[in-house]
């Protein structure tokens, strides 16, 4: 029998993969792809908890998560397009307008 702990560990591992992607990637598109991986890890945890606690509200919450994820991806991609129109690239290390001038990295 597959226990709840195994599903939760799997979801934590998927979330962690996405987190490493968000932290390490320099291309803004890959940061959004990593965010989607993180969200699928969270949804997996919600649905497995809903199954093992026999309460279907976890699935309803996962449904809300999917809706809000769609909204956040729409805003993020439109910001990406605006940033691309400004600088002609998608490099997050070049977003340095708020950085102090005197500091040498």
């Amino acid at each position: 029998m597959i226990t709840l702990e195994m599903y939760l560990t799997l979801s934590a591992l998927v979330f962690g993969m996405g987190l490493m992607g968000v932290l390490l990637h320099r291309n803004l598109i890959f940061v959004f792809i990593s965010l989607e991986v993180m969200l699928s890890g969270v949804n997996l945890a919600l649905v497995s908890l809903a199954h093992y606690m026999s309460d279907i509200r976890g699935q309803v919450l996962a449904l809300f998560t999917i809706g809000v994820a769609a909204a956040s991806v729409a805003v993020g991609l439109s910001l990406l397009v605006a940033n691309y129109n400004l600088r002609k690239n998608t490099d997050i290390d070049e977003l340095v307008e708020l950085k102090e001038e005197a500091s040498n990295d």
């Binding site: 709840l4 939760l8 560990t9 934590a12 979330f15 962690g16 026999s54 309460d55 279907i56």
Partner: peptide
């Protein structure tokens, strides 16, 4: 990641819903 795996692998809820 290590903290999350450690915490998530030790969750064992006692609540049981009606579904």
């Amino acid at each position: 990641l290590a903290v999350m795996v450690l915490v998530f692998s030790s969750i064992s809820p006692t609540y049981k819903g009606k579904h």
